[in-house]
């Protein structure tokens, strides 16, 4: 007779893990982050490093306070994803304290006060972003000029701007394409005129369009690897581009093209990396399409008619609120259930 330890089925070893998912998301961010570094200089890696360090420290502290195994939970990598998304969403030369406020709001407020990974109803990175956007709108508007328009600051300048409190030299700043369109239209210029301006680039802004393509590439890889559900980015693109197409068709001088919308601001980052956060998105197939579409639509509305240049964060947070209801309303028909 021989004795064996028992276990419950299925007996095959698990095929996936949360850390593996998170590290894939980080890997998928790399092309966009690299292109952003190329366009906007040292500020991008500086913000990434700063946000990651602060986020890990904040998460470790919160886990310790909540008496959770610190090392194990930190190892899931989710806090690094939050930090990276925040760092890439914030202006690259934002002062360190602004990043700190955003990171603390994201990790402490939006994540751990709700019970940590898996229990937060709102996307932590977007909560952090909106907190600083509402509290410090001026700092959030300070974007550097892309590489094609001005050589970025060297490392020493970058460090002194981020940590030393010195302002980014005016010559190195430029309005973002979304800002440029917004102020231009408010001054009664037409889009045809605006498109001739150097910041506008070929499609969606000099430099910016490259970064967006970087996120698109990484995002498509995530979809291909099935880390992100294709329905959310597709829904997002449709929710943003279809109303944009309608408006553009009606008056192309007053409304930017759908392609401009898709490749400018945070659209690609939001569609593939932020709206796809499974914890805070809808979980049903149809719910995910609607979730993405709603976030895209809100983005379009805020850009076109709201008080902020971009609306991805608001779109995502509003749809986070709607996610439980969407899940309820879009339950799939169970096998054998009446059609």
């Amino acid at each position: 007779m021989r004795e064996f330890p028992v276990a419950t089925s299925p007996h095959l070893p698990p095929r996936a893990s949360v850390p593996a998912l998170m590290y894939r998301v980080l890997a998928a961010l790399a092309p966009g982050a690299a292109l952003a570094t190329w366009q906007f200089g040292w500020g991008v890696p500086l913000q990434l490093a700063l946000a990651c360090l602060l986020a890990v420290a904040a998460e470790a502290a919160m886990l310790a306070l909540r008496r959770r195994p610190v090392g194990r939970a930190l190892a899931d990598g989710s806090v690094l994803v939050t930090a990276a998304l925040l760092a890439l969403a914030l202006p690259p030369y934002a002062p360190w304290w602004l990043t700190a406020v955003a990171v603390l709001a994201a990790v402490v407020l939006a994540k751990h006060l709700y019970g940590g990974l898996g229990y937060n109803p709102f996307n932590p990175a977007m909560v952090g972003y909106v907190v600083v956007l509402v509290a410090f709108p001026r700092e959030l508007g300070h974007w550097p000029a892309p590489a094609a328009l001005a050589a970025g600051p060297d490392l020493a300048t970058a460090l002194s701007v981020v940590f030393g409190g010195s302002p980014l030299p005016d010559a190195l700043t430029a309005a973002t394409p979304l800002d440029h369109v917004r102020t231009g239209l408010s001054m009664n210029r037409t889009l045809a005129e605006l498109r001739a301006d150097p910041v506008m680039g070929r499609i969606a802004g000099t430099g910016w369009e490259w970064v967006a393509l970087g996120y698109l590439a990484g995002g498509l890889w995530l979809v291909w690897k099935r880390v992100a559900d294709w329905r959310i980015p597709l829904g997002f693109a449709a929710g943003l581009a279809l109303p944009a197409l309608l408006a553009w068709g009606v008056d192309p001088d007053a409304y930017p093209s759908p392609l401009f919308h898709l490749l400018s601001g945070g659209a690609m980052l939001g569609a593939f990396f932020i709206a796809t956060d499974p914890v805070t998105a809808s979980t049903t197939p149809r719910g995910r399409l609607l979730f993405g579409a709603g976030a895209g639509l809100v983005t379009f509305l805020v850009r076109g008619f709201g008080g902020y240049p971009d609306g991805v964060a608001f779109g995502v947070l509003l749809m986070n609120m709607a996610a439980p209801t969407l899940d309820q309303l879009t339950r799939p028909r169970v096998f054998g259930e009446r059609r």
Binding site: P14, V18, G118, T283, P285, R288, V334
Partner: peptide, 29 residues
């Protein structure tokens, strides 16, 4: 053949379970 053993973490609602469910249930719910 049966290891590594499971190392459970909180559900992140990714929906991978619903994608493979032959009864078309929502296992995460």
């Amino acid at each position: 053949e049966v290891e590594p053993a499971r190392d459970p973490r909180p559900c992140v609602r990714c929906g991978a379970c619903a994608e493979v469910c032959p009864a078309r249930l929502l296992p995460q719910q």
